[in-house]
Design a binder for these strands. Structure first.
Lengths: 120, 120
DNA sequence: GCGTCACATCGATGTTTGTCAATATCTTCC
DNA sequence: GGAAGATATTGACAAACATCGATGTGACGC
């Protein structure tokens, strides 16, 4: 059991995003933040997130591929980018692979845009 | 005077971002959203936004260049990306160019991560 | 074990992006 | 107008990225 846990090495970038208005931001933090934005910096990936955000639960890859006008390998590639960034979760159900949004990660990402102090 | 106004043709991508959980999202909307993320998908640009977000007003390019370990042309290039995306505002003051964050745009961008309905 | 299906991975290819030296452009002063 | 300073733009280059056909891997049924 513990051998399995140790395989989860790198933390997903979206798990820790520094607020854009943080008083201090290291190069690592900026790099981490940019990684998450990079995962969303493709229109097809934005569309994929939208499809999952409006679904009633996890969605099968086969259905996502139908929604996005791309080949199966390309969709798989994009999904992996989003999972690696920590924005999506993947679940194998027999032959089928299901994907869903990671709500906490997306909402955490939204909160980094809080700029503080009303500056009128 | 009106001749000057007509030069402002294209709307900045950050001016209109579709919520990630929107019930409908066209390819144009996904493309527009991806453009804004693309502007932030570079660690140096994230750092620049952070420098400006924590500053007490507009900041001169010369000071931004000191904060970021890049050459002057590269900083200028990055700043232009952020201005074009609508995330920063630029102001010429004689020989000096000053940049500041567009608070509304950044906060608007943060709001697109609202996913709606608490799904516990 | 074999065959089938789902889908992840690989490799080739074309496109996009980030970097900097060089240069162009703009502002200001004499 | 010419010179100096600030900074935007250009072009070359290397790295990264998006795409898809081909293929590899895993799950499942017989």
């Amino acid at each position: 059991m513990s051998a399995v846990r140790t395989l989860e090495v790198a933390e997903a970038p979206a798990a820790c995003c520094t607020p854009l208005a943080a008083s201090e931001m290291s190069e690592e933090e900026a790099d981490n933040t940019a990684r998450v934005f990079k995962a969303l910096a493709d229109p097809h990936r934005v569309r994929i997130v939208n499809v999952l955000a409006t679904a009633e639960g996890a969605v099968c890859v086969c259905d996502i591929t139908d929604e996005v006008a791309l080949s199966q390998p390309t969709v798989s590639f994009h999904l992996k980018k989003l999972v690696t960034a920590g924005l999506l979760d993947r679940e194998q159900r027999g032959v089928w692979a299901y994907y869903s949004i990671n709500r906490e990660a997306l909402e955490r990402l939204g909160s980094i845009f809080q700029l503080g102090g009303a500056r009128t």
